[in-house]
Amino acid sequence: MSATWYECKVKYRKTHETGEQKVTTDTYLLDAVSYTEAESRITEEMKAYTNEDFRIMNIKVANFAEVHPFENSDRWFKSKVSLIALDEESGKEKKTNIYLLVQANDVKEAFENTTKAMETTMGDYSIPSITESPILDVFPYFTGEEEQLEKFNVLDKSENPKEEEEQTEETAAV
């Protein structure tokens, strides 16, 4: 199931490193099933982020096919990827554009990260443009199932049967 990403612009009073407070409008991305859920989720995220009053200025559906976070990166880049297919009837190349949001520190790294994200693609593609995105942070939707599976050691199975047996005995003792 693919996610529907919503771009949310939020206006609030932000305290800068210098201690100065200034009203700013920041853009955030989150996935949701509707505008109503997007509004609810961004409200919850912003309550955790700031104690100041804030206003949601705009919510719109973002045109990202995929979002790819990368470790040790602090900015988001919008990568335009042209998927190239050969039209059997006319014999001409047909390009279909998709947009990826990739996390990186600069444009060069964004290109490399886009290439990593496209590694599993079977067809030909090109990357005609990469631009820095105004998106400050991304809030993906988690169901909580991941935490439940980790809690019951379903995701973290040991390769050593003896070690696994000891873990089972410890769990039974608790």
Rank of each mutant, 00 (worst) to 15 (best):
E112S: 09
Y125H: 09
E88Q: 12
S34Q: 06
T50Y: 08
T25H: 01
D124M: 09
A65V: 10
K116P: 01
Y28T: 00
E119W: 04
E119S: 12
Q21N: 10
Y6E: 04
K22P: 03
K14I: 03
V81D: 06
K116V: 04
S133A: 06
E88R: 10
V107W: 04
V33D: 11
K47I: 07
T143H: 10
S158W: 05
I42M: 05
K95T: 15
I42K: 00
K22S: 14
I135N: 02
V81T: 06
K22C: 10
T24A: 12
A3Y: 05
A32W: 00
F152Y: 15
N58I: 00
F142Y: 15
E17G: 03
E164N: 06
D87T: 04
T36E: 14
K11S: 15
D137M: 05
E20V: 15
F142D: 15
Y125P: 07
E88K: 13
R75H: 13
F152A: 09
G91Y: 02
I98Y: 01
T50D: 06
P140C: 09
D53T: 13
G123V: 08
G19K: 08
I98D: 04
E39W: 07
K94R: 15
F77A: 02
T168R: 13
E150S: 10
I127L: 05
Y28P: 01
G144C: 06
S73V: 08
K94P: 05
T131A: 07
